[in-house]
Amino acid sequence: MMRAHDKDLDGLGSVTVEPEEEAAPASRLSIEDLLPQSTSPEPAPRGADGAPARAPAAGTRTARVLEVAGRSATIVLRGATAPIEAELAPEVDPEVIADAQANGDLVLVECCEGEAPLVVAALATRKPREIRLQATTVSIEAEEEVLLRSGHGAVRIRQDGDIEVIGSRISAASRGLFRLVGRILRLN
């Protein structure tokens, strides 16, 4: 860097330049001096298959589930080819995501920069051929009527307490006492 004095004795405004400090020549600097110093290089993040993983773009995406283990899942985001690891949101039951995997359904994934993808929901993408309810207690309630129908058979339960069972052949069996109670029993 140079320092300039712009005042001269004859008033003509001539400039005298003096060297301030001499900079070290570039030939004396080593390559290590030119490169930024880092403590230890972090390994590049890897996908589930061991290939380098790219961070998914921020936003909400759909994905296919490959595997569910505890509160994490191996997924493939739509448009990607490499599987990545994702966490399950606290409110998501791992069994729901395992069912999505078994049925081939998609899941909804939130992606944020600097965070692991988060599975937030399973998506029903087609009309189911079979619905299976499995729970400790199953309760079905209706204000006026419940109707269960398949082919030529039906069970109807009405609000007033009338229950109809209709079928081409109706069988009832009991491993213990079979009791029919009513004020009037009518056979045919």
Rank of each mutant, 00 (worst) to 15 (best):
E145R: 07
A80Y: 11
I140E: 15
R54T: 07
A172F: 15
A116H: 06
L148G: 14
L66I: 04
R129K: 07
D160T: 07
D93W: 01
A69M: 06
S171T: 15
P83E: 02
V146S: 11
P83Q: 03
R3E: 14
R158Y: 13
G47T: 06
R129D: 05
S171Q: 15
E20C: 09
S27C: 13
T62W: 01
E85I: 12
A58F: 06
M2A: 14
V165M: 07
A55V: 09
L9I: 14
V107I: 08
L148C: 12
E130M: 04
Q134K: 08
V181E: 09
R156S: 11
G161Q: 01
A55T: 08
V17A: 13
E130F: 03
R169K: 15
D99W: 00
T62Q: 04
V138F: 10
G167Q: 15
S150R: 13
F178S: 12
I75H: 00
G153Q: 15
E130A: 00
A44D: 11
A26F: 12
G50K: 03
E21K: 11
L66M: 04
D105R: 02
S150W: 11
E20P: 07
E91S: 09
L123T: 02
R54H: 10
N103E: 06
L108P: 04
K127E: 07
A26R: 12
A48H: 12
L29N: 08
A73W: 03
E85K: 10
V107L: 06
N188T: 15
A51N: 00
G79K: 02
G11C: 05
S174N: 09
L108G: 04
A100T: 04
E141W: 10
V68G: 05
G11H: 08
P52W: 03
H5N: 05
A142F: 09
A154G: 12
A23Q: 09
V165W: 05
I75K: 02
G114N: 06
E87R: 08
E42I: 07
R169S: 15
E141Q: 13
A121R: 07
A58M: 06
A23M: 07
I75L: 00
A24D: 11
R186Y: 11
A44T: 10
S168G: 15
L123E: 00
D105P: 03
R186E: 14
S168F: 13
P19W: 12
N103W: 05
P36A: 02
